[in-house]
């Protein structure tokens, strides 16, 4: 992989604010994501994690504030000022989005290979053989055997579906992937295997990840840095181990102490 530019943040949130009626979903959120790092956003349900993810990825518009994305050439773009075609192109190439429910992202009536190849074809790939080779390669990366390439997603198990979704996202070598509870809804052993896979892929391919999760253990395993949210505000941020081992804010202390020990 080419070395990421380390001198400038990849994605930067500046004083993001968004209200739904009287509820402040985002209340002055600042965040930075550096190339190749995994940033976890944790907090309880309704704390604004998913809203922040949607605003950062341009899927929702903030009332105030900016999200700045730096492209591979180093030029800065305001995600919400970008023309729609450009943002859509970004979502198809440099960015990826992994949903909690893989059925939201995958085309269930299209074979695994077609699902992985869709991003390539959207970018203009018009050679069947090379699309198929890339699809086989991506499936292998997520530990799906090549002979499942022509099977429909509905014949896949939940864990396999989630891995297929990741393969589809990786088709175009994205630099930045947004993940919304990628391990939610999976049983514990499948979860562990998926986390292991995500960790090694992210490290090997040098992908930057914004990860939303309510599971502290997932954050500890995957993320380098962590951002704790409550009532639309960032209450604590820092290195994951530091924040989780020595939480300063009372809410973070509560969050960490409420994890069940197996």
């Amino acid at each position: 992989m080419n070395a990421p530019l380390l001198d400038a943040p990849l994605l930067e949130a500046r004083d993001l604010r968004l209200s739904f009626g009287s509820i402040r979903a985002l209340d002055g959120v600042n965040a930075t994501l550096w190339p190749g790092e995994v940033l976890a956003i944790v907090g309880e349900s309704g704390s604004g994690k998913t809203t922040l993810l949607n605003v950062l990825s341009g899927r929702a518009r903030p009332d105030m504030g900016q999200a700045i994305y730096r492209d591979p050439e180093g030029a800065a773009h305001d995600v919400h000022a970008m023309p729609a075609p450009q943002l859509r192109a970004l979502h198809r190439s440099d960015w990826g989005f992994v949903h909690q429910n893989p059925r939201d992202a995958l085309r269930m009536g299209v074979s695994a290979g077609g699902n992985v190849g869709e991003r390539l074809m959207a970018q203009g790939a018009r050679h069947y053989g090379s699309i198929r080779d890339t699809a086989i390669d991506r499936l292998r990366q997520v530990e799906i055997s090549a002979d499942r390439i022509d099977d429909l997603p509905r014949t896949f198990s939940g864990g396999m579906l989630q891995r297929l979704q990741i393969a589809r996202t990786l088709a175009t070598h994205p630099r930045l992937v947004f993940m919304d509870e990628p391990t939610g809804g999976l049983d514990v052993s499948v979860q562990a295997r998926l986390l292991d896979l995500i960790r090694s892929l992210v490290a090997r391919l040098g992908i930057a990840v914004v990860l939303v999760t309510h599971d502290i253990a997932v954050a500890r395993l995957l993320a380098g840095r962590i951002l704790v949210m409550r009532h639309g505000q960032v209450v604590e941020t820092g290195l994951t181990d530091q924040v989780l081992d020595d939480p300063q804010h009372p809410y973070t202390q509560l969050l960490v102490s409420s994890v069940l020990q197996a």
């Binding site: 085309r107 074979s111 290979g113 077609g114 074809m121 959207a122 203009g124 069947y128 198929r132």
Partner: peptide, 16 residues
């Protein structure tokens, strides 16, 4: 936006 990659997915499926 002339985004017609999806139509090629259909052709891909046929060949597969």
């Amino acid at each position: 936006l002339a985004e017609y990659g999806l139509m090629h997915v259909k052709l891909y499926e046929d060949i597969a």
